[in-house]
Amino acid sequence: MAKGLPKSFKKSLWVYHCNSGSCNGCDIEIIAALCPRYDVERFGIKLVGSPRHADVLLVTGPVTRQMVEKVKRIYEQMPDPKAVICVGNCGNTGDVFYEAYNLVGPIDNILPVDIYVIGCPPRPENIINGVAKAWVKLETLEAK
């Protein structure tokens, strides 16, 4: 677990997952992190169906032209305080699609990203590490 994390949390962390045109590789690893082998639900981390309920936004994919407005709207719908995690290399840098004509990303051109999770796709351990770091951010914001 990340440094600076208290022994017990005040709240459970609810996560909203948004696919902005990814290849599914990161998305299945996110689901794998929720399933019995890694089981993040035991820490209270849960995927929710609406951005209005979420503390953390997980964005995968390189953001295609059609998805830009939708990704922005999802971010705006989330209540403060919030954290954005970019999962996977194509959202971070463009990766193999870097020169493609239909991409507006990387994601940090569109949203303020707090945590970059690298890997193509990242392993579930790495995604969990990213979410734990987002937790630190939210807890520090609350302490202020």
Partner: peptide
């Protein structure tokens, strides 16, 4: 459709 179009074939010819 078209939300996941990443111009893969086009990139392939380069």
């Amino acid at each position: 459709l078209g939300h996941v179009h990443r111009s893969v074939e086009w990139a392939g010819t380069r």
